[in-house]
Design a protein around this nucleic acid. Structure first.
Lengths: 207, 207
DNA sequence: CCGTTTTTGTAACGATCAATACATAAATAT
DNA sequence: ATATTTATGTATTGATCGTTACAAAAACGG
């Protein structure tokens, strides 16, 4: 698919690798906090190369969040889809979150949750992108819960919307918790609390 | 207490009012996102007056967070302390949070939670201050729960630490939720979910 | 070979950042 | 009235922000 005959001087750096580096910088510093100087230093290129390859800081960030969603979010969201029951889906989803947010060699917390919470620059383009992705996450939770209701695992009057909002909010809170340096055990304690809520929400009618 | 005989030209603006304005700007924009220009414009003063009265941007932010904690946090934390039972304390604490985070005429979400999540500038002074305040919040929850155990409301093996971490994390998540434009009803849905967790955590042994 | 195309490094752009110099203004103290 | 002290407004500091001109370099097609 990438068999475009190369015209002109070939690029001397690995675009995908540079994007990964940029993603990590945005992950640690956020959109506003990551300067072009820091980005180019981490990417191992000069600013003209950055602009030639990615267009602008905004466009680079959007590509970085796309990469983040595709790579870093895989374990979390595949856990949600592959689990046999809705209950296990939520629990594995949260446990994967706890694990992903406390990896030793990676920034703590989520790029999507923490990347740009203050709508200042770029007139909201960046914020809107992240907000949309956060909304999609809640929707994925909602779909999984609705699937559980359809399969009969959950009572027909189970409030999927409330539950989806709740678990998405817990995940967001875990990002701040992780950014504060919380241990994996502390994050898993939050998971324990959240799953206690599941017991009460789903088990009330089942009991 | 403020009877210091005034020497020199008296200040022509209300320092407390200016600080309130600064707090609101930091609340909306965060520490990094709030520029001196925006601050002085909102405060109705020029930058030399800002530096003469507050010292620096960092010092101004620290005073703003102190004011925020004292004024905006009162309802939330007094609800925690004044409620007759631990259960009601947590519920009113969360309901006050939902209310405070979705006020029409105020920025949504919490300054302490969202003010500076990326440790870039100021070598962490700002981040450390907010982190400390977040830790104090969790401690306040912990103390209230321990008090509930001491009063016999909760089983002696109730895991206060896990519960405190959980509810603090839910509150942090609600800040992001509120920043995303969630309605008060949506925030209260999260409260409902969190209180379901309470039912399972505290009621398991009580039932 | 020459011309075209694209990348690279250097160097700079105007704008904005946080923070101040400086002279003037307005109060008190003697 | 004079000296002292503090606040104010204007203007500016050096640094850094995101972005781009520009020319040399390295690939191509002819």
């Amino acid at each position: 698919m990438d068999a475009m005959p190369e015209r002109g001087r070939p690029r001397t750096f690995d675009r995908a690798a540079a994007l990964r580096r940029a993603m990590e910088v945005f992950w640690v510093k956020g959109y506003e906090g990551a300067s072009i100087s820091e980005l180019t230093a981490a990417m191992g290129i000069n600013s003209p190369s950055l602009y030639a390859a990615f267009g602008s800081k905004e466009a680079l960030f959007l590509e970085a969040t796309e990469l983040y969603t595709r790579v870093e979010g895989t374990d979390i969201w595949s856990a949600l889809e592959k689990a046999p029951t809705a209950c296990q889906a939520i629990e594995r989803f949260l446990r994967q979150t706890a694990k992903a947010y406390s990896q030793k060699d990676r920034p703590h917390g989520c790029l999507i949750a923490l990347g740009a919470l203050h709508e200042d620059s770029s007139r909201g383009v960046i914020c809107d992108d992240l907000r949309r992705r956060r909304a999609e996450n809640r929707t994925a939770l909602l779909r999984r819960l609705e699937h559980g209701v359809a399969k009969g695992e959950l009572p027909t009057d189970f409030d999927c919307g409330t539950a989806a909002t709740f678990f998405a909010t817990v995940q967001h809170g875990m990002s701040i918790q992780a950014r504060d340096g919380a241990s994996r055990a502390a994050l898993l304690a939050t998971v324990t609390g959240a799953m206690a809520a599941w017991k009460a929400m789903a088990g009330a009618d089942a009991a």
